[in-house]
Design a protein around this nucleic acid. Structure first.
Length: 481
RNA sequence: UCCUCAGUAGCUCAGUUGGUUAGAGCAUCUGACUGUUAAUCAGAGGGUCCCUGGUUCGAGUCCAGGCUGAGGAGCCA
């Protein structure tokens, strides 16, 4: 006899029909009468539940009582065509083993819609909901697609360090990392902290970006990418920021900003088409969920259905324009002339606010936009200085609703110019010697970008809060679970 | 960090100008029903009204401070 567990996703397609199978999983819903019980179970392999039909007479009272929402069970029975209308197949239970009970008086999940805020509070259990099951499966598919995309293009994955001794990655506030006793910190004679006694013998932090390290690998391997966790200790309380998030950073030798843009656009379109191809069931569920949520809203606030929105990205080329051109458009725009912008446009040098980005993407071009050649003052030191001496070869990919999804640039590869930019940025030269060495020995043009993985997940799933697209969100005042 | 809004049963929420014993739906428990689809029907139990202080004869309701959450802004990915 077959004693192997059948995954519910397989059972739902009728694999093993009319024969005995064993399924294991968690009860999502249980209902019935004195004679027959219908138990919906889920094992994570599919959005859909498998219906187990329980002939009450065949089971004792104590087993039946334990068939409550949240309990884990193993069911042995015949898989057959369902007599009911809601599903194609069902299992007629012959044997039920209770693997783990869940006291219905305490189990917090009900077979009904819960608010996302409530589910965040029970983050340890939220995987057991349809929504988070769908998000989890899509997230995995996106991770797989990312590695597949780069592998097919001949990239090498580089594990860049999570602990960094460099405090000049320049992307935000860092989390300090130390094994020193905080109640008894060793001090030097001048009163400053004596890091020579710390674990690494120097000041260390959690990385805010793998870019500088991945550039080192790029200067030998040509096409590389890093995909890892990054940490920002900014006190950001928004639906788009996390203290711990995952970032994909490709870096390509001999590429200019043009090829960098091409790569970014191709990459995003690949991932979105991968999701449409492999995650349709979960995407449809999330689309319907979103529709439900928007039901009460006025028509003009309702967004395009999720799947249409994803297809729309595939069907349109991203609009590419320079920062300077964008400023001109914004200056002449209706909201600017009518004083509708909270931050008015003041010519070249104005840093673009989210309201401006949103105007360009959602109102003016109505498609994704790549902005290039920003004023050097508002961008990072490693970006290549353009011939005008005013702008740098930066590129930001802006998406509807979420704003900046990718930030990248061609890198400054001229030794002297880079040195000068480091100086202007006020970064101590002695900390950057290894990075400067890449420009000293065999320097070549190269370019790369960073894609915030959870921002991508926001777009693909249509979720609106970034805390719901990462399994264990970390944000100010919260490191629970 | 700033602005706005919110916190009442396990969940989602109602609670009138400050007034007796704080309500509903769902969930839970008990019962009814031979195939349910968030099953249905009947009944029952369930409350630190976020916390601290204040005003008042009297506070879920008013005031102050704090905590927590949501949305927006800044920082960015």
């Amino acid at each position: 006899m077959n004693t192997k567990r059948t995954e519910i996703a397989n059972a739902l397609t009728g694999t093993g029909i009319n024969s005995k199978i064993i399924v294991k999983g968690w009860i999502r819903n249980s209902r019935g009468n004195n004679y027959v019980l219908f138990v919906a179970m889920n094992d994570g392999s599919s959005l859909h539940n498998l219906q187990v039909v329980v002939d009450v007479e065949k089971f004792d009272d104590s087993t039946r009582k334990k068939l409550s929402v949240g309990s884990a069970i193993s069911v042995e029975g015949i898989l057959q065509k369902s007599e009911g209308k809601g599903q194609d197949f069902e299992v007629i239970a012959e044997n039920i083993e209770i693997l783990g009970t869940a006291d219905p008086n305490e189990y917090p999940l009900q077979p009904k819609r819960h608010s996302l805020e409530f589910l965040r509070e029970i983050g340890h259990l939220r995987f057991r909901t349809n929504t988070f099951g769908a998000i989890t499966r899509i997230r995995h598919s996106m991770i797989y697609a990312i590695h597949t995309f780069f592998t097919e293009k001949g990239f090498y994955n580089i594990h860049t360090p999570i602990i960094t001794g460099s405090d000049c990655e320049g992307a935000g506030e860092m989390f300090r990392l130390s094994t020193l006793d905080p109640t008894n910190i060793p001090k030097k004679e001048d009163g400053s902290i004596d890091y020579s006694q710390d674990f690494f013998g120097k000041e260390t932090n959690l990385t805010v970006s793998g870019q500088l390290n991945v550039e080192l690998a790029c200067m030998a391997m040509s096409k590389v990418y890093t995909f890892g966790p990054t940490f920002r200790a900014e006190n950001s309380n928004t639906t788009r920021h996390l203290a711990e998030f995952w970032m994909i950073e490709p870096e390509v030798a001999f590429n200019t900003i043009i090829e960098n843009m091409d790569l970014a656009e191709e990459f995003l379109k690949y991932l979105i088409s991968y999701a449409l191809e492999h995650c349709m069931t979960d995407l449809s569920f999330l689309q319907d969920r979103l529709k439900q949520e928007e039901k009460g809203k006025p028509a003009d606030q309702q967004t395009m259905p999720l799947i249409d929105k994803l297809n729309f990205i595939l069907d349109n080329s991203f609009e590419r324009l320079s920062y300077t051109e964008a400023i001109t458009i914004l200056e002449n725009s209706k909201p600017n002339k009518k004083g509708k912008f909270k931050y008015p446009i003041n010519g070249f040098g104005t840093d673009l606010q989210s309201e401006h980005e949103r105007f360009l993407v959602e109102k003016h071009f109505k498609k994704p936009v790549i902005l290039t050649d920003y004023p050097k003052e508002i961008k990072a030191f490693y970006m290549k200085l353009n011939d005008d001496n005013k702008t740098v070869a930066a590129m930001d990919v802006l998406f509807p609703q979420i704003g900046e999804i990718i930030g990248g640039s061609e890198r400054e590869y001229d030794y002297a110019k880079l040195q000068q930019r480091i100086e202007e940025a006020g970064i101590p030269m002695k900390d950057m010697w290894w990075y400067l060495d890449t420009r000293k020995y065999g320097s070549v043009p190269h370019a790369g970008f960073g894609l915030g993985f959870e921002r991508l997940m926001l777009f693909v799933t249509g979720m609106t809060n970034i805390r719901d697209v990462i399994p264990f969100p970390r944000y100010p005042k919260n490191a629970e679970f």
